[in-house]
Amino acid sequence: MSIGFIGPGKVGVSLARYFKNKNIVISGFYGRNPESLKEAASLTDSKVFLDLEDLIDKSNIIIITTPDDIISEISNQISKYNLTGKSVCHTSGSIPSDVLSSAENSGASIYSIHPMFAFSNKFTDLEQLNNVYFSIEGKNISKDSEVIKLMDSLGNKYFTRGSDSSAKYHLASVVVSNLALSLFNIGTGYLTELGLSEDEAFEALYPLITGNINNIKEKGYRLSLTGPVARGDVSPVEKHLSVLKDSDIEIYKNLSMNLLKLKAEREFCENKDSLEKLVQSSKKYSELLKLLGGIE
């Protein structure tokens, strides 16, 4: 198995370093920036390819790690060559594999291989990547597919998904990564209004963030519930609503409503009528529901 990369950026280089660490052969990199290509090749003990056909010839898996908006263009470029027996992949989670249809028409098997990880630079800690899940999407995936053999060689956990899943799949990643970042920023913003710097505010909140994540990992969402909504404390929620910025009120209410539903599911064994049963069983939860806009 020999893997060539088109795009010597942070995702391509990080994955190539990781694959090489797992004793998978990296043929090299092709791209537009000569300096980035040299760095990528140096970091992975591989080759700089200035000719696209040469990269294709030396690789049986070609992974496109360019920005999403030029994946189709790259597919059109490589489709000019014979791709019979080759696997052509991209690493976007938001675009289905059929963006590579021109490569498929030239004989390639096409896939989306998406690592569920936020790559911030080319020097990603390889130990972290051992725990990363991959998702695989493409036609006729079987245990004999090159991409499945690659996953098995890595030892990472992975799952396969349908071609119509890309939007919902990518949404899941964005919610827990990008949107969570936005929530952290909103939360630290309220502390900065008390005089803390942004760094101090995040440092103060960091144990709460990591502790919550560890609890969820160990016990699941419902058993990790804490805070005023889970306890049915109306007064703190009223006070929160009184000091929230107008732009944050709907976010607060919507997320708190979800917490209330989780509380109901915990109390009534995830019954479909659990929220109704919770508010009927307790005046304080009924008041909370009204506060959060659940009922008039």
Rank of each mutant, 00 (worst) to 15 (best):
M1S: 06
A264E: 02
E203P: 04
S145N: 05
S282L: 00
D233H: 00
K10E: 11
L241D: 06
S165R: 03
Y111I: 07
S165W: 04
N254P: 02
T226C: 14
H170Y: 08
I213Y: 13
E146I: 12
L52H: 02
S112A: 08
N131K: 05
I249R: 10
L292C: 13
I113E: 13
L171A: 09
S92T: 08
K217E: 05
Y18T: 03
H90E: 06
L196I: 13
N21C: 06
V229H: 10
E53I: 09
S274E: 06
I56H: 08
L181P: 02
V25S: 05
A16F: 00
E200Q: 14
K290E: 08
S173R: 02
K139M: 10
T160Q: 04
T188N: 10
D273V: 00
S46R: 07
T192P: 12
G220S: 04
S27W: 03
I136L: 11
D273W: 01
I148G: 05
K47W: 07
G232E: 10
E193V: 03
K261L: 15
D233M: 00
L205R: 02
A180W: 04
G85A: 02
N105R: 11
P96I: 10
F159N: 03
V243T: 09
A264L: 01
N82I: 01
S112V: 01
L275T: 00
I295T: 12
S109A: 15
S282G: 01
I186M: 06
S173Q: 07
P96V: 11
D199F: 08
L83S: 15
G187N: 07
S274W: 01
T91W: 07
E238R: 10
A103R: 04
V99Y: 03
M1L: 09
K47I: 12
D246P: 04
I216G: 06
I136T: 06
L129P: 04
P236D: 14
A264T: 00
H170S: 04
S79T: 04
D98Y: 13
K253M: 09
P67F: 05
L171M: 13
S102D: 13
C269M: 12
L292W: 14
A16V: 01
S109W: 14
Y158T: 03
N212S: 15
D68W: 01
P236S: 09
G93K: 09
G28R: 07
M151F: 00
K80F: 14
P228E: 06
N82E: 09
S2F: 12
N21T: 05
N105V: 06
N33D: 12
H170I: 07
S79D: 08
L260N: 14
Y190A: 03
F184T: 12
I62L: 14
S79M: 05
F159C: 03
G85Y: 02
E73T: 11
L291G: 09
E35D: 11
I3F: 10
T84F: 15
